[in-house]
């Protein structure tokens, strides 16, 4: 597995983490002043896949192996 493939895996894991943290901030800790974390995580969960697509386009000619 090349760094390109591992980076795609990493961005996917980071996106899932951001979505999970957003859920945690809004559902599990709503009264603990974690709204900033929830909104930030929602932003990250949107931005990371956009970055992932940009990265795949940039490294179109690099092998996944």
């Amino acid at each position: 597995m090349s760094l390109k493939a591992f980076h795609v895996l990493f961005v996917t894991a980071s996106t899932l983490l951001a979505a999970g943290v957003a859920f945690w901030a809004f559902q599990q800790a709503p009264g603990e002043g974690m709204g900033w974390l929830g909104f930030g995580s929602v932003g990250a969960a949107i931005a990371l896949p956009v970055y992932g697509v940009w990265f795949l386009r940039k490294t179109r000619e690099v092998s996944f192996l």
Binding site: F6, A13, L17
Partner: peptide
């Protein structure tokens, strides 16, 4: 690239 793979692994552990 090898260093990057190690760095990504370390970051993935933190995730």
């Amino acid at each position: 690239e090898a260093s990057g793979l190690f760095w990504h692994f370390v970051d993935l552990v933190w995730i």
